[in-house]
Design a protein around this nucleic acid. Sequence first.
DNA 1: CACTTGACCTGTCCGC
DNA 2: TGCGGACAGGTCAAGT
Length: 336
Amino acid sequence: MPELPEVETVRRGLQRLVVGLPVRSVTALEPGGLRGDPSPLIGRRIAKTWRRGKVLGLDFEDGWSLVAHLKMTGQLVYRAGPAADAAGSAPDAAGPAAGDAGPAADAADAADAAASAAGDAAGDAVGDIAWGGGHPSDSLIGPLPDKSTRVIIEFGRGRRLYFNDQRKFGWLAAMPTIAAGAIPLLAKMGPEPFGPEAWPEFRRRARRHRRAPIKAVLLDQSVIAGIGNIYADEALWAARVHPQTTVAAISDRKLKQILSAAAAVMELSLDLGGSTDRNYVDAEGRRGAYLDFAKVFRRQGQPCPRCGRPIIKTRVAGRGTHLCPRCQRRQTPPAA
DNA sequence: CACTTGACCTGTCCGC
DNA sequence: TGCGGACAGGTCAAGT
């Protein structure tokens, strides 16, 4: 479930790996995964990457862009290996031929992935690179394309970027760069949660929803950018606020605390690599540091790290919600 | 307009 | 062991 830290981690990886590369082809394996006409991207180089909330963008030369939303199960995986399209390539290991998209011999196994994730993306020599970010699943490390693969972007000499999305909620969209800002989600997007300048705008936007539960407001991208279910629960636990509390019942002081907590937990997650990437590959080849930072998310039944009372799972704003029933009361306790 | 609910989709897990 | 169903959750559309 890529949220802001995961998407930022993906962006940083792409910044390192694909900026400067000219696109040779863009192939949608099934309709729906790719919006817009990708043909203007062909032959153009990726000039820069950006992120706004959970939305990711690749800006190409001459004012073209590829915008991406990974939603819950999307991932972007970059592979550079013995090029199937490089004439007379060395004898390859003929891995399991998964898929129909030609001779895909760039399947790296988990060990290779971990070893080369450190990255040796040097100049002309295309070494083996296997990097992936987004939803943690075996598709990050297994042979590609696989059944979750929806779009393949080729850069030539065996370098490919795969857009995988098990549940098909995510999307890529090719468009003029100036059109990206007009995407409704981006046009309405609230402030990024980091830095002191986020607070006044967050307050203004949050206060418009007087009767809504604070959790629903945190999840609203037009109020504050980048927060999803995980970080909403974590921030409210850190600030000791019950997710069901209406905005009107929350003081400015507390509201500011919630924003700070959200920013802090997302920064922590970012430091841990966005809870995906090579962390996923590391520990026993699965689930590495994923969610290790979480104090309440998916920890129902476990003791609250602050008071020891078991974390409970309930439903707020139509979402699975985790909280400590002692630390997070519906009403502010009568002064401490 | 504020607020809530269902739909989208597929893999996984639970109970029978 | 198989099977139905609930659940996962970001965003949008449609509901009250």
